[in-house]
Write a protein that binds this DNA or RNA. Structure first.
Lengths: 225, 225
DNA sequence: ATTATTTGTTAGTCGTGACTAACTTTTATA
DNA sequence: TATAAAAGTTAGTCACGACTAACAAATAAT
């Protein structure tokens, strides 16, 4: 599990809340900017960064969706926030309207153990002082996240270990490209403007979409850079 | 009481600890840098910044001393750190060697109320899990800090409300300058290289040392900029 | 369907707090 | 005391995450 900056965590949490508040599972750049009290240009830059890390996905001028890894991280933030709110209310004599501001700070504390202990200390509460549900610990699932082709850094090499999309279209496309499980693949370039990737294998270079890359699970080849 | 950045807080705390560890009350740039695991150049820049804010004092190539306001802030950090360590040890099942890392994060949480409540919750402990003393709340004293000439921003105007150094040398110097309690003073410039200030009053412009300025308590004249 | 408005992106700038490299001052050693 | 070493500073760069201004795309309104 990677370490995120405070800002990255805030953006993922914002996306999660915006998706929850609407029934729609897609949000726009401006909504995110407004929610975090930053300008759209700032949000645009950050969202691009989160896309490169495969926490979210969107196409240029398109709506934003949370990917599983991003959703798990957001859930973790919500879990921490609501546990801290419960602590502040029940043990620190904070009123319901005072807890949020401080919980905003406490939720960024990075300690798996602290959160587990805090939850035990609080008696494994199911709801926070506002009545909102506290998500369960997700640490176990997150550890199972597999890297995809889209997670590679430029210059890294890998083997394909699996493909996640089993549609016939997808599989036919893989076959046409000449990709096989034994192919050694190198990420040559990434293109920011549309998120696509230039990869090389067997002496060929081809361009693949980000969506495609996210469906190809890989095993990194270490050392070779 | 001003808001400090995380870095500023870390530097003040480092200075406090370095001064405590030695019997000497003066520390050097390199010591600070080493303690915080940064390069001397980085420490140098930060220390200059803290000097401008009158939390510390030093002359070029000289040793660094904590001024009262800086010391109060450092004590506040130590207080918070040790209260959190106590909390982690006594209620979160952290071992003595696990508490420090997380307390380093928790000490930056900004909430007066939380710390007061935490102290009450812990039963007003006098010592942390390592046996180190927990400083008392200093919020009350800090509120009494008076601004000095050295606290002004360029362009600000003020009246002198008091002088803190009552030595005859100092008072004679004040008199020679022609400064009086009724003089309206304007801060024209500050010189980073030695910390001295250019002030104007009664149509005259004179240069005074930082040390001098810190001994002159002032009342800001608002609005006039 | 064409224009207007809203939404989103890019390019370039700024402050913060790191960094390296080069330099100056102080302190220690020969 | 002259020189070497250590300590401290400056100048210039970088990454991060904000910002504004200008532009492009998508959606709404005429």
């Amino acid at each position: 599990m990677k370490k995120l900056t405070k800002s990255e965590e805030d953006y993922l949490k914002a996306l999660f809340h915006l998706i929850e508040e609407q029934q729609n599972d897609e949000v726009g750049t401006n909504q995110v900017a407004q929610h975090l009290d930053v300008k759209p240009a700032s949000a645009s830059a950050m969202l691009k960064k989160l896309r490169k890390k495969s926490y979210i996905d969107f196409e240029k001028y398109g709506k934003i969706r949370l990917l599983p890894s991003g959703r798990n991280l957001a859930l973790d933030m919500v879990r921490k926030h609501r546990l801290w709110e419960t602590f502040l209310h029940e043990h620190m004599h904070f009123e319901w309207d005072e807890v949020h501001e401080v919980a905003e700070q406490l939720e960024h504390i990075d300690s798996e153990k602290l959160i587990e202990e805090l939850e035990r200390f609080l008696g494994h509460p199911k709801f926070d002082p506002h009545g909102d549900p506290i998500p369960p610990s997700s640490g176990k699932y997150q550890a199972l996240d597999k890297p995809s082709l889209a997670d590679l850094k430029v210059g890294e090499r890998c083997y394909i270990s699996a493909v996640n999309d089993h549609s016939s279209d997808f599989l036919r496309f893989v076959k046409e490209l000449g990709l096989a499980l034994s192919s050694e693949i190198k990420l040559e370039e990434t293109r920011d403007f549309d998120g696509s990737l230039l990869i090389s294998f067997d002496g060929k270079k081809i361009n693949v979409s980000r969506k495609f890359a996210q469906n190809v699970t890989v095993t990194r080849i270490p050392g070779k850079k």
